[in-house]
């Protein structure tokens, strides 16, 4: 029997680090947003891991069930997923607009063009 222990939290943190690095270091704007969604998924996993109870079932009431996992983190994360898609869509719309105005979606080229225009 393998024990998970704290592995889930560490996996969340590693995913968070990958997402954060992608969002900071990659110059491509679409790649930055992909990094942001990896970051978000890591936060979702962290919350859902906290809500898990060993031997529990999904929080749907039924006969003869002893233990349920905690439903409250699930509610929080449901809201967070939907808000996440709203921010992603707005971010992508901004990327499309930037692409039209500058003819590129690479951050360093956009900054260069700004300097030339000034």
């Amino acid at each position: 029997m393998i024990s998970v222990g704290l592995f889930n939290y560490w996996a969340c943190m590693v995913l968070m680090m990958i997402g954060l690095y992608t969002a900071i270091a990659r110059p491509n704007l679409v790649k930055k947003l992909i990094g942001l969604s990896i970051f978000q998924v890591s936060v979702f996993l962290l919350y859902i891991t906290v809500g898990k109870v060993s031997g529990g079932t999904a929080p749907i009431l039924g006969e003869g069930i002893e233990a349920y996992s905690n439903p409250l983190p699930h509610v929080l994360i449901l809201t967070a997923i939907v808000v996440g898609i709203a921010t992603l869509s707005l971010g992508l719309a901004l990327v499309v607009r930037i692409g039209e105005a500058y003819d590129t979606i690479e951050e360093d080229e956009i900054i260069e063009r700004d300097i030339v225009n000034d």
Binding site: S37, V41, F44, I48, T49, G51, K52, V53, G56, T57, A58, P59, I60, Y68, S69, P73, H74, I77, L78, I81, V82, G84, I85
Partner: peptide, 15 residues
């Protein structure tokens, strides 16, 4: 696996 079935189908549909 973590018993969050509602979150799972929202993530599959939306994410």
């Amino acid at each position: 696996l973590l018993d969050a079935v509602d979150v799972a189908f929202t993530e599959a549909a939306v994410g």
